[in-house]
Amino acid sequence: MGTHEGDYDSGRLYGDLQDGPPQAGDRARNVVRNLGELLITAGMIVLLFVVYELYITDLFSAGKQREATAALDDEWQHQPGADVVEGGERTNKIELEDGKGFAKLYIPKFGADFHFTVLEGTSDKTLESGPGHYKGTALPGEHGNFAIAGHRVGKGAPFNDLDLLKSCDAVVIETSTSWFTYRMLPVESEARRWESVKTKSPRCERVNKLGAEYNKVYGRDIVAPSQGGVISPVPYATPGTKPGVALLTLTTCHPKFSDEQRLIVHLVLTDQEAKNPAAPNQLPAALSEND
């Protein structure tokens, strides 16, 4: 880059070149200079990519998430269909359309403003708009495993702090007509003496030990990406095992900034209530647990 002002218009190559014909050293200097500039440019591009991944994708995703939420709100306002789940069986199916929102997810521990619209499917494109429901897994409230994937870094990063959830913390799912409260299962170190641990918090009241077929299911788990069993109706069990409870499973990448492993959080359904159309501001109690 020329530095000596006034040289630009005189047709000289660079400000620091002396008068006279080009020397053999000038050529080498030129090559080194250009190489240096290229390397600096490459470095800047990589840095810009990091900025893009961490911040710019958040902006793009926030817009898409807003659109998905607006579309869902609109739909709920216009066709509040019956959405009744009894004994783990849904009597009326939620309409699922690829890439479209169908439920809202709240994690009160992450703050009152933490809510995302959950979309159907787990393609890259869908996950840019928000957390995605693994196709074919259970729906909210159903017996089986309602499984959701979400980004940990960038793209809105819905599951950035998933590792901070503790056993009995709530994740609330809202559908067009119901609220479902799921609570995190005991982690491995608590599971053995759960009966004594659970008495420490009233939130744990309905988080009970699950049946024998669930003996490998803990609140938090870190698995290899190939472990598809985490989203089975009964996680890690042999296929065909009949689910006895309604689970919610959240998956994201682990550790942060890597896709080496997956962080898995399993929760169990503890409460469900139908929305009261006469009192739309009546919210489940779990939504106000913000610590």
Partner: peptide, 15 residues
């Protein structure tokens, strides 16, 4: 365009 071709953004498990 480049991003989906990179490896570190997978959050799902294999189904």
């Amino acid at each position: 365009w480049l991003e989906p071709k990179l490896w570190f953004n997978n959050v799902t498990t294999e189904q």
